[in-house]
Design a protein around this nucleic acid. Structure first.
Length: 564
DNA sequence: CACACGTTGGCTAG
DNA sequence: CTAGCCAACGTGTG
């Protein structure tokens, strides 16, 4: 196809942002074709992308469903999704040439995720050579992260290293910009917004239907990067916590938020339940937000509308539903800031401006026991089983397993845990994943390491009968409630009745939580002291141990006087 | 320098 | 079921 002179041939390149609604880049591409011309909506299945490099078959399945849904929606507009496979730097120029593309739009990736950054830089260079004009738009977060108008960095004097690094101060920044008002989302384009043109490639660039159609990254040993699968594994993926696609995302938004104004207004994240065995207590919009099936601004305004309809008092950030979107922007801003200071530092410990260097051990056996749910702590193993099976765990379950792997029990690096989550979670997100792992391991953003989750007590008080364990660790399904959280404490006859053989049908505990959690707290104390020394450079004299008892006394006295 | 505060801890006494 | 302690983190504010 060649463009008539004066007519634009526009391409919109979907990477994340797999939606038609609130998609400024797509709308711009369409506006270029108002006076004739044509549009090519494109997705490149890129095995090296964050979405596919480390990726379970369940996550791959979700991504393909997103593309299929997008294809169907575009078909209803008289267009379709053109799917290519390979390295965008090679694939896109071929398509530009074939289609006669004059302009390409895409959503910008502002976090500085290393692969996306080098990919977009390389694509911009080849586009320049090919004479294709590339225009990008921010639509991944509530506000732009960087220096664009209305962006967080732009509102902090343009310096990405001086943005707020605590949630409290971030909320202040958020409220200061445009008085905390978030622009209305843009409508999805309608059929009449699309130019009419025949599809000369109707048998080509079709959407992939099966995870096995996705090629492995070339020249790499896939088994060392992430999960591998075959057709039989792929066909077995049946437990769907979420079907991929914008249609499903908007449907879920309707059912969880729009239809439940009182529930929405009273939402308190820490109080949501992590004991449900089939019906999650949260919205499960995260898989859709991470791949961009739904716009954060669309979710924001749906919450706003529901809040106004509610007949109850409404909760406030950070625990409210709006608060959850603020956390998301905050996490993205932190990734942007870290990578602006040291490229690629966000996902690692080294050079990461927000991460303390804690001397984690590296024990392959500990790590694999955790990944495979063989720690001998039923609540931890149940969570890991749900992760493997559904690609999702409740937020508090994630806390428990993350604390357990790192500062709580196994003393393994948070980066290992983050890699596993990235492979398995349907809502794997570059910014949020590392942020939460730093938080839970007390490497950054959260420092009260003496607050430690118990792999037993925390869930025992929520789910005394252990229903969640019974579902995800069926080996323990017959254990009496009294011993289901600590099967090693049950006597021989109880175990026998329940059909459990410790060390055979279910493992003995890999560590003694009561012992190692105390040891680990002292290790944290040492690591923090070392950090203080390296930071202060002798600036601040270390307090002597002799001052401790009087300090305690003084505080106690003050507390007492305060109470009176 | 002191103090309040931080989205979601555990334990025990009353 | 709740309050207070455990042993004590960093950040932001005044």
């Amino acid at each position: 196809m060649s463009a008539k002179s004066g007519e634009n041939v526009a391409m919109h390149w979907f990477r994340k942002g797999l939606r038609l609604h609130d998609n400024p880049a797509l709308l711009h591409a369409l506006s270029l074709t108002k006076n004739g011309g044509s549009i090519f909506p494109v997705y490149v299945v890129d095995p090296n992308s964050y979405q596919l490099l480390k990726c379970s078959v369940n996550r791959a399945r979700f991504l393909l469903e997103c593309c299929q849904d997008l294809d169907e929606s575009l078909k209803r507009c008289g267009s379709r999704l053109y799917v290519a496979t390979g390295d965008p730097v090679e694939v896109l120029p071929e398509m530009w040439k074939k289609f006669g593309v004059t302009h390409m739009t895409h959503e910008s990736d502002e976090t500085g995720e290393p692969y996306a950054l080098q990919r977009d830089t390389a694509v911009a260079a080849v586009a320049k050579d090919a004479g294709v004009e590339v225009i990008d738009f921010t639509s991944e977060t509530l506000r732009p992260l960087g220096n664009r108008e209305g962006g967080y960095v732009a509102n902090c004097g343009g310096d990405a290293s001086s943005v707020p690094a605590t949630m409290t101060s971030f909320q202040k920044l958020f409220s200061r910009i445009d008085k905390g008002n978030i622009p209305e989302p843009l409508d999805a384009p309608k059929k009449e917004d699309f130019p009419i043109s025949a599809d000369e490639y109707e048998n080509d660039y079709l959407t992939l239907k099966h995870p096995c159609d996705i090629p492995w990254p070339r020249g790499q040993n896939r088994s060392q990067i992430g999960p591998i699968w075959n057709r039989a594994d792929a066909n077995k993926v049946t437990s769907h916590i979420a079907n991929g696609g914008e249609s499903y995302a908007l449907d879920r938004l309707q059912k969880t938020i729009t239809a439940r104004p009182n529930w929405t207004a009273q939402y308190e994240k820490p109080k949501t339940s992590c004991t449900e065995v089939s019906d999650p207590s949260t919205t499960v919009l995260s898989p859709y937000l991470s791949i961009g099936c739904i716009s954060p601004r669309t979710v924001w305004h749906a919450i706003e509308t529901a809040n106004k309809q509610a007949k109850t008092n409404r909760t406030q950030p950070p625990v409210s539903l709006h608060g959850q979107l603020l956390w998301r922007d905050f996490n993205n801003l932190m990734a942007h800031s870290a990578n602006s200071q040291h490229a690629g530092s966000w996902g690692q410990i080294k050079n990461n401006a927000f991460c303390r260097d804690i001397p984690w051990s590296s024990d392959p056996n500990m790590l694999s026991s955790w990944k495979e749910g063989r720690t001998g702590y039923p609540w931890i193993d149940a969570c890991m089983a749900q992760l493997r099976s559904e690609g999702w765990i409740h937020h508090l379950g994630r806390h428990a397993v993350a604390c357990f792997l790192t500062r709580g029990d196994l003393w393994q690096s948070w980066v290992e845990g983050a890699d596993h989550f990235e492979a398995e979670l349907l809502d794997a997100d570059y910014a949020l994943n590392s942020f939460n792992w730093m938080w839970l391991s007390a490497s950054g953003f959260f420092y009260q390491y003496f607050r430690c989750y118990s792999p037993i007590q925390f869930q025992k008080k929520n789910d005394p009968n252990g229903n969640y364990i019974r579902k995800w660790v069926p080996e323990l399904a017959e254990m009496p409630a009294k011993h289901i959280y600590e099967p090693w404490k049950a006597n021989v006859s109880i175990l026998k009745t329940a059909g459990v053989k410790l060390g055979k049908t279910y493992p003995r505990p890999i560590v003694d939580h009561a012992v190692v959690s105390k040891e680990n707290m002292s290790k944290m104390k040492l690591a923090y002291d070392l950090h203080k020394k390296s930071q202060g450079g002798g600036k601040k004299p270390a307090s002597t141990s002799g001052t401790e008892p009087p300090k305690k006394k003084a505080k106690k006295v003050k507390k007492q006087t305060k109470l009176k």
